[in-house]
């Protein structure tokens, strides 16, 4: 117990005794934890961006003029059963007509010419949304070759196929790039943090060898450095947490004006505990692991 108390006390002394080095360590750790935090935020932001784009993609199936709405609803219930199909919406002839009129109410020539036709030329349709581009192909094949093929007039999949595939390839690319940068920045951050701690401990190289020679066990030598790292990591985490809040607060409206579906404050408040935990854990792990590895080198006496 005495030993444990001493290790804690000496760790605090190490930290408070070398203000300049501790300040530098905390500062670098704030940078590292901020990088981790940005990567943490980037994930929901890129998800939302991708979702935004993907939501704009769908495939419509048009049914022949004389098809009974009951039959269409039956087709709908079959399509829903296909895995990875997210949403199927039924648009009746009337709804299609109304939405067209609504969309083009400014365009009098178009409205007039539609009135000339004298009847509703629009077809009832199902609008299908899937999670993956490949699923659209499956829906198209199912409708063109399955039991309902007589009912189907047209599927706009084939003409939209290149666009759909491009969109999905793009969103996949965005996710991959985000992942790649997360890894690269994460590793760079780790190396910087580790080297800062290493330099801090290097200045104690001589002291570590004296400690060993006067009979200190490895844990008695290591302990204070680990505590020192832990303190630096935790302080850095708490400062970063406050900085994250301040940054989310001030950048919220800026980001929302560019990407309306993204709210930084929203992400911050809905992930409050997880974020604090991640920041504290990153700080603690960074501090202790770097100290452990850096001290190890000098304990061979």
């Amino acid at each position: 117990m005495n030993l444990f108390k001493r290790v804690l006390k000496n760790g605090w002394k190490n930290f408070s005794g070398s203000f300049g080095l501790s300040f530098a360590t905390v500062f670098v750790m704030i940078l590292v934890i901020s990088t981790i935090t940005i990567l943490y935020f980037l994930n929901p932001i890129s998800d939302m961006l991708v979702k935004d784009v993907e939501e704009k993609v769908d495939v419509s199936v048009y049914f022949k003029e004389e098809t009974d709405p009951e039959d269409i609803l039956e087709v709908k219930s079959e399509i829903v059963k296909i895995p990875e199909v997210e949403e199927v919406n039924y648009i009746s002839k009337e709804e299609a007509f109304e939405s067209f009129m609504d969309r083009h109410k400014e365009d009098h020539i178009l409205i007039d010419s539609l009135a000339e036709v004298g009847y509703n030329p629009f077809l009832a349709s199902l609008s299908v949304k899937a999670k993956e581009a490949s699923r659209y192909e499956q829906v198209a094949v199912f409708l063109e070759t399955g039991p309902f093929k007589e009912l189907v007039d047209k599927i706009d999949y084939h003409q939209r196929k290149p666009v759909i595939e491009k969109v999905f390839a793009f969103t996949k690319g965005v996710k991959n790039i985000a992942f790649f940068f997360s890894m690269v920045f994460g590793i760079i951050a780790l190396i910087i943090a580790f080297n800062t701690v290493k330099i801090a401990i290097q200045s104690s190289k001589e002291e570590i060898s004296i400690m060993r020679l006067v009979g200190a066990s490895n844990w008695f030598v290591r302990g204070p450095f680990i505590i020192q790292g832990l303190i630096a990591g935790s302080i850095a985490a708490l400062i970063t947490f406050v900085l994250t809040f301040v940054a989310s607060h001030f950048l919220d409206s800026n980001i929302s004006s560019i990407i309306p579906s993204v709210s930084l404050l929203g992400i911050f408040s809905s992930n409050l505990l997880a974020l604090l935990l991640i920041q504290l854990l990153s700080g603690a792990i960074l501090g202790t692991a770097s100290s452990l590895i850096a001290v190890r080198k000098y304990l061979k006496i």
């Binding site: 005495n2 030993l3 001493r6 000496n10 005794g17 070398s18 001589e206 002291e207 004296i210 400690m211 006067v214 009979g215 200190a216 066990s217 008695f220």
Partner: peptide, 17 residues
């Protein structure tokens, strides 16, 4: 001697150990 410790602390360190 430990350069950052006082004479007292240098001596007491061994007892702490």
């Amino acid at each position: 001697l430990f350069p950052s410790k006082t004479a007292y602390e240098n001596v007491s360190y061994v007892m702490e150990v």
